[in-house]
Design a protein around this nucleic acid. Structure first.
Length: 573
DNA sequence: GCCGTTTTCGGCCCGACTGTTTTCAGTCG
């Protein structure tokens, strides 16, 4: 079993225990363990084999022995007993808005409902309204939520969709005269790869007109809830947006609160209580005396004796402890990127010419751009034969003459073939400035075989970067079955950089693996894999992943000035 | 069920909003 599967089992266990009516802190313990496992950069099997399970935050004696049983036998007796008691399909029912554990338990016990479709049927037949505490309106609300759930393609929206959508809301809100400031919060601000909904926080001393303007935006399909400080809407495409409006005087605590993560906020509030202050979105409340209000976030952290913690690091993955001990790293910023090492042109499957790509990159202030088109065997992408690769070199040289302010380099995104060889012979690779080696085919090979292909590429002295190392797609294709610890370790040993592919549909490496690279002291490269000049904009998502991985600029090779980069490349052969 | 420069036992964040209620339970973030 992999990390994700074990995490999923514990998160389902938590849901089932909650429906059963177990003590809440026992449930939270399972959720915390599940969160911790899904953010773990190391393979759980490796941690288990080396007897380090108890070092995982949130894993104590009981959960460690459950992981032990799970990895030893592939089964968990505790879960099987629980699933015999509470139908596991009720976990799906919990996804419906306004349905939590109490209602799910009631539907099941009183009406025999165990699945989403049974709930929908019961609601449309008016069978829910007879239950205690349920009326016609609750029933209608639940029915609407089920329909909204099916209208959404997936549970969570890609950040590549959510980010531009949020900018649209922010621009319009900021243009209102009553609005002093507007920011995105939630998992979007933390740059998670997917978001459940958009959270928008506005500073305004007259909330009414702001709220009114927001509810009247044309994309709004229905209003799910609305109060004095908070409104929640659903858009035509099923996306949910929440708006918080708070006075400017305590915008800091409001933004901090709305940014989360929930686990980070819980830790922060515990820390606050230890100082005799109760922290909420409105400010710090001392046991007696006046409330402390914070107009900006830095003041919130300062009140607790902490440096400001970047939103991407607020996941309760040790950031508060690190901040208390003054060892929180400064993560890379978008402005640290000096160049692009992985971009395509119309020589393979890119949409524009080398020259246009170069102009666009120069316009963004980049110092260098590597044109790395596909190699010969990738026919669907019009991969370059050795002859075309030679010819392309002359065209790049010509473009270099006509575009100023940027250094153009020739690279290649070389196929790692199904048998583990690279798509060009070594003497061809040796002539290239940069070699990005990637897997595109035969991703479903058994673990040992596909791992060996990547290790082979890493050990080739001409390979500089491994492109989108796992092949996974966000909300889509699963990662190849790889021994990641072996791959990351080998990359570090061979001084090969691992790509954080910044395309929001890829984001590969993910944050957990990238953090593991940083822990191991390895190198990363944030690459857009651009097929069009607009794609250079993906850099923000790649930087988001790197910041979530606590990566300093130093660890990312394309933050280096050109001379240093060239030295690194030539030292590698 | 986890965890400890307040603790190895007794704690474990805080508030808004809704619907069905006459004071609150449930859900959400």
């Amino acid at each position: 079993m992999n990390n994700r599967e074990v995490a999923r089992l514990f998160s389902d266990t938590a849901d089932l225990l909650e429906i059963k009516g177990e003590a809440i802190y026992r449930i939270l313990a399972y959720r915390r363990a599940a969160e911790s496992l899904s953010g773990l950069g190391e393979d759980i099997n490796e941690v288990w084999r080396t007897k380090r399970l108890r070092q995982i935050p949130g894993v104590g004696e009981a959960i460690a022995s459950k992981i032990d049983e799970l990895l030893k036998t592939g089964k968990l007796t505790f879960y099987e007993k629980l699933a015999a008691e509470i139908p596991p399909s009720l976990v799906e029912v919990l996804k419906v808005g306004d349905v939590g554990p109490k209602k799910a338990a009631r539907f099941w016990k009183e009406l025999g409902i165990t699945t989403l479709s049974e709930l929908e049927e019961a609601a449309s037949l008016g069978r829910l309204r007879g239950l205690p505490g349920m009326g016609e309106r609750s029933e209608a609300r639940i029915l609407e939520s089920i329909q909204a759930l099916s209208r959404r393609e997936t549970d969570r929206i890609s950040i590549g969709v959510a980010w531009p959508a949020a900018q649209g809301f922010l621009e319009r809100l900021r243009s209102l005269p009553e609005v002093a400031a507007a920011e995105a919060g939630g998992s979007l601000r933390r740059m998670r790869e997917t978001v459940g909904d958009l959270d928008i926080i506005v500073a305004s001393d007259s909330p009414e007109p702001v709220m009114k303007a927001f509810l009247a935006f044309p994309e709004v399909e229905r209003v799910r809830g609305q109060g004095e400080t908070k409104a929640s809407v659903e858009l035509h495409d099923g996306m949910r947006v929440q708006l918080w409006v708070h006075p400017s005087a305590h915008f800091g605590t409001a933004l901090q609160y709305a940014t989360g993560s929930q686990a980070h906020n819980v830790r922060l509030r515990e820390l606050s209580l230890a100082k005799g202050l109760s922290l909420s979105e409105h400010g710090f409340k001392p046991k007696k005396g006046k409330d402390i209000r914070c107009a900006n976030e830095a003041e919130v952290y300062e009140t607790l004796g902490l440096p400001w913690i970047p939103p991407e690091m607020r996941e309760d993955r040790g950031e508060i402890k690190a901040a208390l001990e003054s060892r929180l790293p400064v993560p890379i910023a978008l402005t640290d990127l000096e160049g692009e090492l992985h971009a395509h042109s119309d020589w393979s499957d890119g949409q524009t010419s080398i020259e246009d790509m170069a102009r666009a990159a120069a316009g963004l202030g980049l110092q260098y751009l590597v044109i790395s088109d596909h190699s010969r065997s990738l026919g669907v992408a019009n991969g370059l034969s050795i002859e075309r690769l030679e010819a392309q070199r002359k065209v790049i040289a010509a473009a270099q003459k006509s575009v100023r302010g940027i250094r153009l380099l020739q690279g290649s995104e070389v196929e790692i073939l199904a048998d583990g060889r690279l798509d060009y012979p070594d003497e061809v690779l040796a002539k290239l400035d940069v070699v990005v080696a990637s897997l595109h085919t035969s991703l479903r090979q058994p673990r040992e075989k596909v791992t060996r292909r990547l290790l082979n590429a890493i050990r080739n002295p001409h390979v500089d970067i491994i492109g989108h190392p796992t092949g996974r797609m966000v909300n889509g294709r699963e990662a190849a079955d790889l021994d990641m610890e072996a791959i990351l370790t080998a990359a570090v040993e061979n001084d090969v950089a691992l790509e954080i592919n910044a395309n929001p549909e890829r984001l590969d490496l993910n944050d957990a693996h990238a953090r593991r690279v940083v822990e191991l002291g390895g190198l990363l490269s944030i690459n857009t894999d651009a097929h069009h000049p607009d794609h250079f904009d993906f850099r923000r998502y790649g930087v988001g992943v790197a910041r979530r991985a606590w990566a300093p600029a130093e660890a990312v090779v394309n933050t280096w000035p050109l001379e240093r980069l060239l030295d690194w490349l030539s030292a590698r052969g």
